[in-house]
């Protein structure tokens, strides 16, 4: 597989269960053997890859030995989402926020729930971790295997979602609702905000309202740096040094989802350059003298699928490089990643 010469970030996306992690890792291995310094960030939830590559899934970067001598290098890391989330807050907070404020917010119930959510959803923390390492300039390629979100969309939209929390000046809104009104306009605004607060209080109880107030007070001082950071993460996604590789599997249902995804990605201006159809069967044209009903049913189903997939492919992707890789049922291990890489071939 070839990428543009100035590309620094390669993001693998696709729906669940299409072999994203394996393909991302094998491309990383392939590029390391071609002489590049590569970091692969894997989010494989089952940690199979970490096991296969024999490194600890502890959120730190590990050097992976290469099967043959090469001037390149391969390093791999899983993500400790909780730690990354706190790193993110501390980085934004370091200059502007007193330690006490950080303590205050960490003990806020709403914040705790929010941070667990954000770190569970993995979307934002993954992106931030990627940003940190691309920015460090220590690697030729930083390769990311995206979270197993049902829709990769959630991952791409993560910065927008979190910035909504920090851009609206909600703290001042709270003050407006409680402070003394100075103008008639403010008074009108305040009457409606006071009503909203009443509703909130009625719905959720006053304790929750206190938590909410505490939360917005605590985040006030670092709204701007946080937001800048989020904007930088977003910029990385649309940068011309970032390429997206879309993976789909040999399955008509999944292909349908992939089509929708690829269209959306184009529309949003991400740099989608490669499509890999994974798990294509390698036995369909194998000659056989023996007739077996089950085998033939599969063969005809798969041939039909292959036909529809390639028809759909040529319809939507004119500039996209399309590859296929065969069904890799054998165990992934760090020894056969380079083989997997060599089996990713152009589809014609």
């Amino acid at each position: 597989m070839k990428f543009k010469s100035n590309t620094k970030t390669i993001i693998f996306i696709g729906t669940g269960g299409v072999g994203k992690t394996t393909i991302a890792a094998s491309v990383a291995m392939g590029k390391a053997l071609e002489g590049y310094k590569v970091l692969v960030i894997t989010i494989d939830p089952s940690l199979r890859l970490a096991q296969a590559m024999n490194f600890k899934p502890n959120g730190q970067i590990h050097k992976i030995p290469l099967p043959q001598a090469s001037s390149g290098s391969l390093q791999a890391s899983t993500i400790n989402h909780e730690k990354v989330f706190y790193d993110f807050l501390s980085l934004a907070a370091s200059k502007t926020t007193a330690q006490q404020d950080i303590k205050n917010i960490k003990s806020n119930k709403l914040f705790q729930e929010l941070s667990t959510r954000l770190s569970h959803s993995q979307d934002f923390t993954t992106l931030f971790y990627l940003y940190q390492h691309v920015k460090s300039d220590q690697f030729d390629y930083v390769i990311l295997d995206t979270p197993p979100a049902q829709h990769t969309w959630a991952f791409l939209k993560a910065p927008e979602k979190i910035s909504a929390l920090f851009t609206n000046d909600l703290t001042s809104w709270f003050r407006a609702a409680e402070g003394s009104p100075k103008s008639i306009f403010k008074k009108i605004v305040n009457q409606s905000t006071a009503k909203v607060l009443d509703i909130l209080k009625m719905l959720t109880g006053s304790d929750f309202l206190d938590e909410l107030r505490g939360f917005f007070n605590a985040v006030q001082s670092w709204q701007k740096p946080l937001n800048d950071l989020i904007v930088n993460c977003q910029k990385l996604l649309v940068s011309n040094q970032t390429e997206f590789v879309l993976i789909t599997s040999f399955d008509h249902n999944k292909f349908h989802l992939t089509q929708n995804l690829s269209r959306k990605i184009y529309n949003e201006g991400y740099n989608l350059t490669h499509l890999i159809v994974n798990m294509t069967p390698d036995w369909l044209d194998e000659p056989s003298e023996y007739y077996d009903e089950t085998v033939e049913k599969f063969r005809s189903l798969y041939l039909k699928t292959l036909k529809t997939i390639s028809k759909d492919l040529t319809m939507i992707h004119k500039n996209l490089k399309v590859y296929k890789s065969i069904n890799l049922s054998q165990n992934i291990s760090h020894d056969n990643l380079d083989k997997i890489y060599s089996q990713i071939v152009t589809m014609d």
Partner: peptide, 27 residues
């Protein structure tokens, strides 16, 4: 349903605080 009044619930749902709360409030 919980707020009982259509106009109040509209006010509540269109308010910036409620909106951002709804968008980010986990769950």
């Amino acid at each position: 349903l919980l707020i009982h009044s259509a106009s109040l619930s509209k006010l509540f749902l269109n308010n910036p605080l409620s909106r951002s709360l709804i968008n980010v409030a986990p769950g």
